[in-house]
Design a protein around this nucleic acid. Sequence first.
DNA 1: TGCCAGGCCCTCTTTAGGGCCTT
Length: 217
Amino acid sequence: MHTARTQQDLIVLDFETSGMAPQRGDRAIEVGAVKVNDGRIVDHFESLMNPGFRVSSFIEEFTGITNDELRRAPRCEEVMHQFSEFIGGAPLVAHNASFDQRFLKSEFARIGECKLLRFGCSMLVARRLYPEAPNHKLATLVAYKNLPSQGVFHRALADAEMTAHLWMEMEREVCQRCQVDTVPFEVLRGLGKVSPKKIADHLEKVLSFQSESLMLS
DNA sequence: TGCCAGGCCCTCTTTAGGGCCTT
């Protein structure tokens, strides 16, 4: 069995938010993230965030995060400074990354942080690798691939952990298909962006990358 | 008054529309 190796830190993150659209004033209310290296979760970050207003009863029920908890939580700006230090310059992964990317950019903009964000999307890659799955919701994929789960959903750290296990599973999947020991982040990330008919061509890049690495070493 | 996210993907498509996925 192949063991996929992540040769650098990878941050897998998830936001719980007050709604769907930061451009309409929605804010992050919880951030959870894990640091992955060498195929293992080696660190984590978790914090509630006080957005400065009450969230809807729907969000309270959906996430289990109450307005009373948010009132006592540190403000978003304080948490985001800490989170920026946590992620450093590492590449990022999220499930349906366009959603988390919008909120991360929005919250970073509020604190004047403008670091380059390289996002991989576990949902887009899963659509390519597991087109036969019932659907590509995070919970469904976790069950479909029998991945580790504490049975908690819609909380930031729990969702980030499950997304990390999904990403590592997909790394292993590509390594097995290509008979290689490692798959670069950019190759796996790119798999989510190619057309379904070009998956085989894209995976050939894994082999060529492996060959080039061996020649350079 | 009516609408109100956005990026990706598929198809009954491309001068478009609707479903998926995230909270």
